[in-house]
Amino acid sequence: MAENDPIISVRDIHVQFGDHVVLHDLDLDVYRGEILGFVGASGTGKSVLLRSILGLNPKQNGQIVVLGRDLDRISDEERILVDMRMGVLFQHGALFSSLTVKENIQVPMREYLTLPKGLMDELAILKLELVGLSGKAANKYPSELSGGMIKRAALARALALDPDIVFLDEPTSGLDPIGAAEFDELIAKLRDTLGLTVYMVTHDLDSLFTVADRIAVLGNKKVLVAGTITEMLKSDEPWVKSYFRGKRARRIDLPEETRIACMER
């Protein structure tokens, strides 16, 4: 991993709603080509941080640098360029309900680019096949899809412009364990083929153990710890401890070295 090449770097972020401070002096780096798992107790502001990076939430203070550009200082043109390099999979898919799956995938293509219709159709089918959906789903409406298919279709839309960074908000929530494992594999596979950087907000311990290269833990209004899963297991933070070594986590097969590291403590 190219540790010195942060694709997203967040510095001193402060976000508050009214008197309620959600994030305070938060720092976070995401490196090119990695899958970052982002965890934290419910209500600690994982989504707020995600939305701040995406520019959906105003922040009171701080600096967000994406692809080497400070998002507060760039021109509208550059902002569009940066937006084109980012894809988002929202928690509930957020597919446009009045468009078919194919049209959903083509929305970013239509908005940003002028591509011939035939090519757009082919690319939409290709993206669907890449995320493991059959091309037959292309002409269906989101309301006709199952939960897992909606996640996949939404991922296909997030990938429509071949972004550098993909943000996933709880990608495996609401999927059965097999579907969730497949989705994890899919994300790892896409990262390897397309060279994606993945920022994944999740509660799924299996995802964290299997695909995440690094994990960042949000708590107490900032990033408590960031590091590999082994480092997580060694951490002394009470919340991190109970999260990764709680009753639910214990059942997960750990790599030998981490298990030993765990037992030593």
């Binding site: 991993m1 190219a2 090119r32 080509g33 692809l67 080497g68 550009r69 550059e78 360029l81 940066v82 390099r85 550098d164 790892a188 990262r191 390897d192 083929t193 060279g195 290269d213």
Partner: peptide, 14 residues
Amino acid sequence: MANAVHTEKNTPEI
């Protein structure tokens, strides 16, 4: 993690 593939530079300059 099998991600040696994308160490080559295959990313467009912004």
